[in-house]
């Protein structure tokens, strides 16, 4: 794997700094009543940005609900992303095919199978593409994730299972999810599994790039367990002091992926400039989000069927009578 050039390191830093800042802004927007809920990702920027940066256009990413950093790298418009968290439209408003980035998936684990199926389809189409699916260590307990990995092994599907082991599934620590290391599960499904430092963006990028390349070339799936930490709450309504000690969080703060990359780049002028750039972009995002149209009740009838049955049209008419 060729190592990243200095300008690429800087690009990664920009993406991560932007991700962090939007994350904070989203939490603030929720506190101000502009979003209904938001699951913050602060602490996981290297895992998300570093892995997504290894994707090529033709690859497809299947996110859970916490992958805003991946959305950013895939070029998803954040207003269309965040409107899901304003309660305007479940799944998000962006076009999944425009960015090869799936809808926000909040039923834990079930989307792993979709990534496997997509990868099987890509292989049937002649290869050269890979899927990546993101989920947490908690999700590895779900039957669907086991079934997904087993399918992937059997069909040698070009898929990367990217687990962000952020140590907590709401209030349940990783030790309650599995009695064996997550990365070692891959062995039982017949493909490589590795554990990486998920707060080291270069390590994340290198490992993911290699796994994706192997997949595109027909070498089958890989499981990557990125060790990281959810520095914030599970979601804006959650109160982590109920289940974890502040003392546990502190050492992870010292492993802040942004600080680590900044130290590597070692260019204070640059990092200062990024802060300004990012502020500007976040201001713009806030303005665009606040002026984005609000969901109209009648829209809930859209996209249920290609051709709505007559009974549904009548119900839509009834709703229109009350809300127009």
């Amino acid at each position: 794997m060729p190592s990243l050039r200095p300008d690429q390191l800087k690009e990664l830093y920009r993406l991560m700094a932007f991700t962090r800042r939007v994350d904070q802004e989203a939490v603030a927007l929720q506190r101000q009543g502009e979003l209904t809920a938001f699951p913050p990702l602060t602490g996981q920027e290297a895992a998300q940005v570093g892995s997504a940066y290894a994707l090529q256009r033709q690859d497809f990413a299947f996110p859970s609900y916490r992958e805003m950093g991946v959305a950013i790298v895939r070029g998803v418009d954040l207003v269309e992303y965040l409107r899901a968290y304003r309660g305007d439209w479940n799944g998000g408003l962006y076009d999944l095919y425009a960015h090869n980035f799936g809808p926000i998936a909040s039923s834990v684990g079930s989307h792993a199978l979709h990534a496997v199926g997509w990868a099987m389809g890509a292989a049937l189409d002649g290869g050269g593409k890979a899927a990546i699916v993101y989920f947490g260590e908690g999700a590895t307990s779900e039957g669907d994730v086991h079934e997904a990995m087993n399918f992937a092994g059997i069909f040698r599907a070009p898929v990367v299972f990217f687990v962000q082991n952020n140590q907590w599934a709401i209030s349940v620590p990783v030790a309650r999810q599995t009695a064996a290391p997550i990365h070692r599960k891959a062995e039982a499904y017949g493909f490589p599994g590795l554990r990486i430092d998920g707060n080291d963006v270069l390590a994340v990028h290198a490992a993911t790039a290699e796994a994706l390349e192997r997949a595109r070339a027909g070498g089958g799936p890989t499981l990557i367990e990125a060790l990281t930490y959810r520095l914030g709450a599970h979601s804006t309504a959650d109160d982590p002091t109920r289940y974890r000690q502040a003392a546990e969080v502190e050492p992870w703060r010292a492993q802040d992926p942004l600080l680590r990359l900044a130290a590597q780049i070692d260019d204070e002028d640059f990092t200062r400039q990024v802060v300004e750039e990012v502020e500007e972009r976040v201001r713009d995002l806030r303005t665009r989000l606040l002026s984005a149209p609000r969901a109209e009740p009648e829209e809930m009838f859209e996209f249920v069927y290609a051709e709505p049955p007559a009974t549904l049209a009548a119900q839509r008419e009834e709703l229109r009578q009350w809300h127009s």
Binding site: T36, A84, R86, G87, D88, W89, N90, R294, A295, E296, P297, E299, M300, F301, V304, T311, L312, Q315, R316, L319, W322, H323
Partner: peptide, 17 residues
């Protein structure tokens, strides 16, 4: 209505009132 449960912003219009 005969649709998937809608997004939060419009749920009040879905629930019987």
């Amino acid at each position: 209505y005969d649709i998937p449960y809608p997004a939060a912003a419009v749920e009040a219009a879905y629930l019987p009132d």
